[in-house]
Nucleic acid binder design. Structure first.
Length: 390
DNA sequence: GGCCGACCTGTGAG
DNA sequence: ACTCACAGGTCGG
């Protein structure tokens, strides 16, 4: 273990690919075997995925009934009573277990006497006393019954029903607000590959190393305080963050002024509208990014992030009178959000994510397709014509 | 309130 | 080789 750790420190910047990312696509397919896919997680086995959250490295797999997990060594916790009593293997695994996919009741909380929150912003106070079973339940929001909601949304909307057939088991994750906020600042006017690499860079540059095994170094997302150093803006610009470098630095500073991660956490207790309004005061955060943060890390599941994909879907399927509009004004943005909220109800953001997945997949497979509309896809003549126009 | 253009950078199409 | 448009937007005029 020691030997390999030294080896990987040498080239950490180049080789590491796993981070506390969680990032961006705050969803995961965890129910259908075929679709098992944890975005920005690394596939580390046949049906096994490894990634970071709650300051731990998790390796997950699943069967029909359970999510199976292994949690790896976490240096910050090593000296605690809790871990002393757990068995460690050479691979650094210190505990393992399984969580039922749809538990009927939440087991009691296990208190760990540890200073987990050493940077002041990794965990909520509540998280500190959660068992790993509960951390996993919380992260995947396993208290929400997908079956029930999918049925409800399908009943209201035939287009959802169709999309849902291909995208079963999509879950909105409950992610760390600090991580989510800065990851989405990176997302503006950007593509997924570059966003991912930027989040990785943030972790390497400013995150803490939390584990090192099987040839990979794992970092968590940087603590807020690491992003308020005056050198941050230039460093990030040099690292290729473009104009987002300033947004990251300035937002970090402003959040610290407002009360740090406690301030961010307290947005959970506000209404969705209030939380969104507060977030929009930070540089680099507009309506869309604010909605992503609300939906994916603050528990405001009625938030509908209207990005280019959702806008296209809305125009094609739901609000045809918007056809031809070139820019999404605040008014149009809100109209789209309100439409989905009235259609799907209080978990509208969750339902909308399934539509998003379907459009993103279609777009990645064939960018021309969505401009044509579904009916005309097979006509190659039209395809050529459109390509010329484009 | 709505409408533009600028903004960093990497990538792929033409 | 070399533009050019575009990618899960935001901001200021």
């Amino acid at each position: 273990m020691k030997r390999s750790r030294r080896r990987h420190e040498l080239d950490a910047g180049r080789r590491t690919r796993n981070f506390a990312n969680a990032f961006v696509l705050a969803f995961v397919y965890l129910q259908s075997e075929d679709n098992t896919k944890l975005l920005l997680w690394k596939k580390t086995g046949n049906c096994e995925w490894t990634g970071v959250f709650a300051n731990r490295v998790w390796t997950l797999s699943q069967n029909n009934e359970y999510i199976l997990y292994r949690v790896t060594n976490c240096p910050a916790l090593e000296t605690t009573e809790k871990l002393k009593s757990t068995k460690k293997s050479s691979s650094g695994v210190h505990s393992a277990g399984r969580v039922k996919g749809m538990p009927k009741k939440t087991p009691t909380c296990e208190v760990a006497d540890v200073e987990i929150n050493r940077n002041g912003d990794v965990f909520t106070k509540h998280d500190e006393c959660l068992s790993e079973d509960d951390l996993l339940r919380k992260y995947f929001r396993l208290d929400v019954s997908l079956e029930e909601h999918y049925a409800q949304w399908s009943k209201k909307d035939p287009h959802f029903k169709k999309a849902a057939k291909k995208f079963t088991g999509v879950r909105i994750l409950s992610q760390n607000p600090v991580e989510t906020l800065f990851s989405f600042i990176c997302s503006s006017n950007n593509n997924i590959a570059r966003i991912s690499s930027m989040v990785e860079k943030l972790c390497i540059l400013y995150g803490n190393k939390i584990a090192d095994f099987d040839g990979t170094v794992y970092y968590d997302f940087p603590p807020l305080t690491a992003l308020t150093d005056p050198s941050v803006e230039k460093s990030l610009r040099d690292a290729g963050f473009g104009y987002r470098a300033k947004f990251i630095y300035q937002s970090a500073c402003k959040i610290m002024q407002l009360g740090g991660s406690d301030w961010l956490q307290h947005l959970q207790s506000l209404s969705y509208e209030e939380a969104k309004m507060e977030l929009k005061k930070l540089p680099g955060i507009g309506a869309k990014v604010a909605d992503c943060i609300c939906l994916m890390s603050l528990g405001h599941l009625e938030a509908i992030p209207v990005d280019t994909h959702i806008y296209q879907v809305a125009v094609q399927r739901y609000l045809p009178h918007l056809r031809g509009r070139k820019v999404v004004t605040d008014k149009i943005y809100n109209e789209i959000g309100s439409h989905f909220r009235s259609l799907y109800g209080s978990l509208a953001g969750w339902a909308h994510t399934i539509l998003f997945c379907a459009d993103l997949k279609m777009f990645q497979d064939d960018p021309v397709k969505r401009k044509l509309g579904i009916k005309d896809i097979e006509t190659s003549r039209k395809r050529r014509k459109l390509k010329q126009e484009l």
